[in-house]
Design a protein around this nucleic acid. Structure first.
Ligand SMILES: [Mn+2]
Ligand SMILES: [Mn+2]
Ligand SMILES: [Zn+2]
Ligand SMILES: [Zn+2]
Lengths: 146, 146
DNA sequence: GCGTAATTGAAAATAATTATCAATTATCTC
DNA sequence: GAGATAATTGATAATTATTTTCAATTACGC
């Protein structure tokens, strides 16, 4: 059950949020690609369908979608943020290509043991984690060798 | 062998970097605390010793220290960056208290297996990772309950 | 002391995000 | 289908974090 623009639209309405054409434009942009996009890039694309949309509304819509766990946020090491439609519904992490920024989701998250151990050793109450892997995808690896 | 301001000063000189009073002021600030500090906060403190120092120089010095692996950079989930003197010299990660921002270093990094598995499954060449744990330290946990 | 390349700080530029607020509008009610 | 209303929007300005530019300064080897 992949998330589509319409499916998300239904979820928004269910949750009591208005279904505005601006929000729908953002949803269509997000559903149309598997790439991570910056708010600015999403704004550019959404303007094709709705030239009057404001960048602020894109930010607001992304915040809303993130709050509802409908989009994933990618934390590049340099601090920029990319957004993409959430693909696996359950807990997962991201492998990001340093060349082309492609994102692969992976679910293997062997952190609960680690968290328990660290929690025991530090007496911290551990509530979450941030894990991302970086590397080169097969295509970018080839290019890099050329 | 803990890193002190003077030890780092020696390393800088060894590497051919000039030992300016501005850099030394930043080093002293970093050596004087175990807290993570923003560039702005480091700037404020460094001004006590050297009122004429510029914020730009703080940024430049932090970049230099990070390049030489002498400071650690903390990536808060919201995108802000904190810096602190590097304590364990070898590879490690950070557990950050969401209450008081205290950072605990931990070395257990059970990611090589995971990386190999993901690498095999995705054909990516994995070159690095970002891992941080978040939680509440014992003191902040107590406060939260009050 | 001198020469020189590295370093510095003021100022402006850039980038990413957030706040303000009056005007608009999606949706509920009749 | 209108009317009420609270949510939503976009222009604009404000903030925040960082980087660039460039002329003046300075640490350090000779
Ligand atoms: Mn994802
Ligand atoms: Mn550290
Ligand atoms: Zn790639
Ligand atoms: Zn704490």
């Amino acid at each position: 059950m992949k998330l589509t623009a319409n499916k998300i639209a239904g979820i928004l309405r269910e949750q009591g949020y208005k279904l505005t054409p601006q929000r729908h434009a953002v949803l269509k942009v997000m559903a149309a690609t598997h790439d991570q996009l910056t708010p600015e890039a999403i704004y550019e694309r959404a303007r094709a369908a709705r030239p009057d949309i404001g960048l602020v509304t894109v930010y607001r819509t992304l915040d809303l979608l993130a709050k509802l766990d409908l989009v994933c946020r990618i934390h590049a090491p340099d601090g920029c943020h990319g957004y993409m439609m959430r693909r696996p519904v359950d807990h997962h992490h991201h492998l990001v290509c340093s060349g082309c920024r492609t994102v692969v989701d992976f679910a293997e998250c062997s952190l609960s043991e680690l968290e328990e151990k660290v929690s025991r050793e530090t007496s911290f109450d551990i509530t979450g984690h941030l894990l991302e892997l970086y590397g080169l995808c097969p295509e970018c690896r080839t290019t890099a060798v050329d």
